[in-house]
Computed example of a mutant assay.
Amino acid sequence: MDSLSHLTPSELYRLAGYSSKSRIGSSNASQRNNISENIVQDIGSAYCSIFNWATMQYTFISDSVKNVLGYNIDAFFERGLNFTFSIIHSIDMRKLREVHLAIFSYYYKTAPTQRSRLRFSYNLRIKTASNDYIQILRQSTFIDFTDDGKPTMEYIYNTNITGFKFNNYINLTIHQLSESGVYVLCHEQEFSDSYPKLSERERQVVELVRKGLLTKEIADQLNLSIETVKSHRKHIIAKTGACNMTAAINMIRN
């Protein structure tokens, strides 16, 4: 598979072990009230969700998602995974197939009786409602299964860890709960960045923007037209997957 092509809900469904004949449907809003808020503890920097792999729909999302990402829960219920995928950083989206291949490879190598003891954790960048990217640590366990061992319900705890320093890699860790009640690390894997390289001219534009020069001033200094500089700026934003030039410069510097 091409690791640079984005993961789709249908392919994710197949990676989880389900038939290629997808059962993915629209979300049923009545499911939202079937799970009590008492099963989660919401804090300002985290939110919880429960995902049904058999239907590829969210069953529950805590209201604190609004505090962390700025979106109402309706966006996730009404648009499902398509909305979730749309707010994940484009470069991280390129890696998600490899991440889930590693997750389900380990999952199906584990004895069915032990699969509920696995905890999967990885970081990724998500765009908030204010168009800023934050780092989220996603930790999950499967809490319900089909008779033949496929995952059905997944409990997910998402924490804003933007305050920590990252190299913009996705780091996957898999822990297994021991008989003594301690999670033991059993797999670790790093998925490196795949930033497209900037051209020499684009690097010059980045440096001048970083110094505070405006588009016209950059054009004068590099002997370019204003439209050419604007074009370079657009290419830089597109290559980094950032939402604006400031975000692109921050990502390049990191």
Score class of each variant (00 low, 15 high):
residue 127 K to H: 10
residue 26 S to Q: 15
residue 231 S to R: 06
residue 84 T to H: 05
residue 81 L to S: 13
residue 115 R to D: 03
residue 9 P to V: 04
residue 36 S to D: 09
residue 155 Y to F: 13
residue 188 E to A: 12
residue 14 R to C: 10
residue 140 S to M: 14
residue 95 K to P: 12
residue 45 S to I: 14
residue 38 N to V: 15
residue 123 N to M: 01
residue 218 I to V: 12
residue 8 T to G: 01
residue 60 F to H: 07
residue 86 S to Y: 03
residue 254 N to E: 07
residue 83 F to S: 07
residue 65 V to H: 06
residue 27 S to C: 15
residue 151 P to T: 10
residue 132 D to C: 13
residue 159 T to S: 13
residue 178 S to D: 09
residue 205 V to Q: 04
residue 55 T to C: 03
residue 208 L to W: 07
residue 253 R to G: 02
residue 114 Q to C: 15
residue 57 Q to S: 10
residue 163 G to L: 06
residue 213 L to M: 11
residue 75 A to W: 04
residue 45 S to K: 06
residue 119 R to C: 13
residue 222 L to M: 04
residue 234 K to H: 11
residue 171 N to D: 09
residue 169 Y to G: 05
residue 60 F to R: 01
residue 153 M to A: 07
residue 253 R to H: 11
residue 107 Y to S: 04
residue 127 K to V: 05
residue 228 T to K: 08
residue 240 T to V: 15
residue 82 N to P: 00
residue 95 K to V: 05
residue 125 R to K: 03
residue 83 F to Y: 14
residue 158 N to R: 05
residue 208 L to F: 10
residue 186 C to P: 01
residue 224 L to C: 10
residue 3 S to P: 05
residue 152 T to N: 11
residue 52 N to D: 15
residue 94 R to K: 12
residue 58 Y to F: 09
residue 181 G to T: 01
residue 173 T to Q: 13
residue 11 E to A: 03
residue 97 R to T: 12
residue 40 V to A: 12
residue 141 T to N: 11
residue 202 E to D: 06
residue 98 E to T: 10
residue 144 D to N: 04
residue 140 S to H: 08
residue 49 S to G: 08
residue 109 K to S: 15
residue 97 R to L: 04
residue 93 M to A: 13
residue 25 G to Y: 07
residue 181 G to S: 04
residue 190 E to I: 15
residue 68 V to G: 02
residue 75 A to Y: 07
residue 5 S to M: 08
residue 193 D to W: 08
residue 22 S to P: 00
residue 117 R to S: 11
residue 100 H to N: 14
